[in-house]
Design a protein around this nucleic acid. Structure first.
Lengths: 357, 357
DNA sequence: CCCGCCATTGGGATCGATTGCAGAACCGGA
DNA sequence: TCCGGTTCTGCAATCGATCCCAATGGCGGG
């Protein structure tokens, strides 16, 4: 029913092989023949049949992106970047959502195999190294992103979570803060562990003890951010700064602070993790640690395209599980200030706003 | 290199045709033969080659989802729903991002054709009805979502934007508000027009005039929300309620209100459009109009699967461009209250918080 | 003037699964 | 025992593009 290569060949008065070569940019073809075929293809509105093409050539021109969810700002930024890059290189992106469920992830990896994706970017649960290695072995390009799996043979792109948290904490310390609250993710996650380590390290470097009362770690949910904030405020009223290193929790932290009448940065300096566009519209604009979602996506695509290139050249080199890091960046805005005088009476200064309308 | 149907057939001691029929759930096959083949397939770890399958059967088991971006909460909710449903029905989802650029959209629609997607859900720019109709004609199932294209022959699923804005406005009117501000999207968009119409209608039904000074319409950006809020507060200090019907602008409206020291709902009642999970964690929890993103996605998938089913049954019935609406829902939380006494002196009552906690 | 090389082109097999059609096996009834 | 019918199975063609291999034609050098 639709126009096939055979039709184009007939219209151009050449054979199918010649037509194929002309359109696939092969070098062993006369320039004028190519022009002839291209013209015929255009005239007939020829659209190649990808199924046939990938059946024969074993290249699907499909890449898969597996993410935990799309709500997380970093994830959908990455999805946008990957889709854009893929399209530019004539690859199509199939998107999969695991909900952080290893079983769903496993199913997805199998399906990906069936469809013969050429490449795969995996923001994984970390528990399916075997399945992803199987794909690698069968010739699929694989890149792990954000969450590394130790036994994976594929390259891994990680955020510099430890550095980011370290830098943020140090910034607060250098402003003079000594009682710095921490709201983070669970310790069985990569980012939860690393960011906490950065916070700890910075304190230690300043010779400060780790005060458990200043620390709240819990699930990636707004509700947790809200309750954690309340607990911190109640437990340690003399806290002068807060590092909110759990992205989802930030949505609960901000309103909880507002509800408690805490003024930022007058009463409390605040740094949030992961840059979400609207945090710059906050009042005051919030200082954040940008984990570089865009760059993470770009680097992962670079590595994937490299592998893809190599596979086409049929030079499968020593695969390695090298790890790359994308640096974090502290973006200073208006939510941090030196702590006020310690002797200050909190309750006296809180009720009034400073009135700048 | 990998296991093919031929291998399975050999292992089970049957022909390729029989093996194929056994695995594809054909009815003309003996139960025990099927069991035999299935067992062999499992044992060998057979994974069908989708490219070959779709070449022959003309079914790609691929569906496309085209969205403008992934930042908008409704869009990524829809992406999640569609992906989930698709996976359950053994379809794979390819995701495309247009950035609301009609030219990109056109390219994407063509590519979708090449890959022979079985179906397509299009949150379009509205300007490529021709291309999508071409797909429809070539046997691809198509559903338009959120943004309708008048000349499209495919069914369309829309949000009840007019009703939603109408209900929200009426709610404010019934609480006693008379000066209700409106921040909305540009009038060349579907939602921008419809929501404004709902606002207008409600006012008219209450015999109130449309006051241009209370109205701000602009781009889907946080920055616009912020500046629009400032302008409204300055221009009409006696405004007692605000309907923020521009989703992206909400991110600017909330901080702008906080910055201006406006208390919600004491000084101003507030309703936002589109339910974003963390608005319930706001202080106070924000009353919203839920446009039903989840239901929009579900209904679009239902319609798509229906078409897909029909195509398999080879009963292409009268295609029609019927339009469906998913009702909006007012979710009342804590950001609305009756207006305070008109004679009240605003400046006198503002400094103190009402002291809870 | 003939030979051989290079640059192109065409023929036809091939990728792996699906499917129309023909035929085998089996059943019961006459 | 034979026949018609039903149920299941196998053969072989097919989908559309790719690519190995052989063939063609032109041209320069010996």
């Amino acid at each position: 029913m639709s126009v096939t290569l055979k039709d184009v060949a007939a219209a151009a008065g050449v054979s199918r092989s010649t037509a194929s070569r002309a359109l696939s940019g092969s070098s062993l073809i006369a320039a004028e023949t190519r022009a002839l075929v291209e013209e015929a293809a255009r005239r007939l509105g020829y659209r190649p049949n990808r199924a046939a093409s990938s059946l024969r050539s074993r290249q699907s021109h499909l890449i898969g992106l597996v993410v935990g969810n799309l709500v997380n700002a970093s994830f959908h930024t990455i999805a946008e970047v990957v889709q854009r890059r893929a399209a530019a290189e004539d690859y199509q992106m199939m998107l999969y959502i695991t909900d952080a469920d290893p079983r769903r992830e496993e199913t997805i990896l199998k399906t990906l195999g069936e469809h013969g994706v050429d490449g795969l970017i995996l923001i994984g649960t970390g528990s399916n190294a075997a399945a992803s290695n199987a794909l690698l072995a069968s010739g699929t390009a694989v890149v792990n992103l954000i969450r590394g799996a130790t036994e994976s043979a594929a390259p891994t792109v990680l955020a510099a979570d430890r550095d980011g948290a370290h830098e943020a904490t140090r910034h607060l310390l250098e402003l003079g803060h000594r009682r710095i609250g921490y709201i983070g993710g669970p310790s069985d996650t990569n980012s939860g562990r690393e960011r906490f380590a950065g916070y700890e390290q910075a304190l230690r470097e300043h010779g400060l003890p780790i005060d458990e009362r200043l620390i709240e770690r819990g699930p990636f949910e707004p509700a947790f951010g809200s309750s954690a904030t309340d607990r911190l405020l109640r437990r340690v009223p003399e806290m002068t700064a807060l590092l909110a290193a759990n992205h989802e929790a930030v949505f609960g932290v901000l309103p909880a602070l507002a509800a408690a009448g805490v003024r930022v940065p007058d009463d409390l300096s605040l740094i949030c993790y992961e840059d979400i566009s609207w945090l710059r519209w906050w009042h005051p604009p919030v200082t954040v640690v940008d984990n570089g979602a865009r760059e993470l996506g770009e680097l992962a695509m670079d590595l994937l395209l490299q592998q893809l290139e190599r596979d086409r050249g049929k030079v499968p080199p020593a695969r390695n599980g090298r790890t790359y890091r994308v640096g974090a960046q502290l973006i200073q805005r208006g939510s941090c200030a030196p702590p006020r005088d310690q002797g200050d009476d909190l309750s006296a200064s809180r009720p009034g706003r400073d009135g700048t309308r």
